[in-house]
C-alpha cells in the first residue's frame, strides 16, 4: 500500500511541477493545489497506513494514529485559505495588468 501511495504522491508532485512551470497563472495556481495535495498524502503515508498504532497509553485498541489526520486537516484549511487568496490576487492582477501570462509580468521598475 505504501508503495502505491508513493507512486501516487510522485505523480502528484510531477504534475504539480509541470503545471507550475507553465506560463499561465491559473495553471500555476492549480499546480500549487496539487503540490499541497501531494504533501497531505505524504503526511498520511508517513503516519503509517495501518491500524493499531495508536498513541494511547495502556490500551491496545484498533485505532489509527490520529495525529497525521489532524495535521492534514490543519494543512488543508491553510492551503484552502492560501489558494483562495491566490485566486483573488490572480484575478485582480489579471484585471490590473491585463494578462495572466507570467512572461509579461516580468521586470521591476526603478532598476538601473
Amino acid at each position: 500500500m505504501e508503495i502505491l501511495m508513493a507512486f501516487v504522491i510522485g505523480i502528484l508532485f510531477m504534475s504539480a511541477t509541470y503545471l507550475m512551470l507553465s506560463k499561465s497563472l491559473l495553471r500555476i495556481i492549480v499546480g500549487t493545489g496539487l503540490l499541497s495535495h501531494g504533501a497531505h498524502m505524504l503526511i498520511l503515508t508517513m503516519g503509517g497506513l495501518k491500524t493499531g498504532s495508536a498513541p494511547l497509553l495502556g490500551e491496545n485498541a484498533p485505532y489509527t494514529d490520529p495525529i497525521p489526520q489532524a495535521l492534514i486537516l490543519t494543512a488543508i484549511v491553510i492551503s484552502f485559505g492560501v489558494t483562495a487568496f491566490f485566486l483573488v490576487l490572480a484575478y485582480r492582477a489579471y484585471q490590473e495588468l491585463g494578462t495572466d501570462n507570467m512572461d509579461r509580468m516580468r521586470g521591476t521598475e526603478g532598476n538601473d
Partner: peptide, 10 residues
C-alpha cells in the same frame, strides 16, 4: 465569512 468574502470579491 471567508468563503463568502472571496466569492463576493471575485
Amino acid at each position: 465569512g471567508v468563503t463568502m468574502t472571496i466569492i463576493q470579491t471575485i
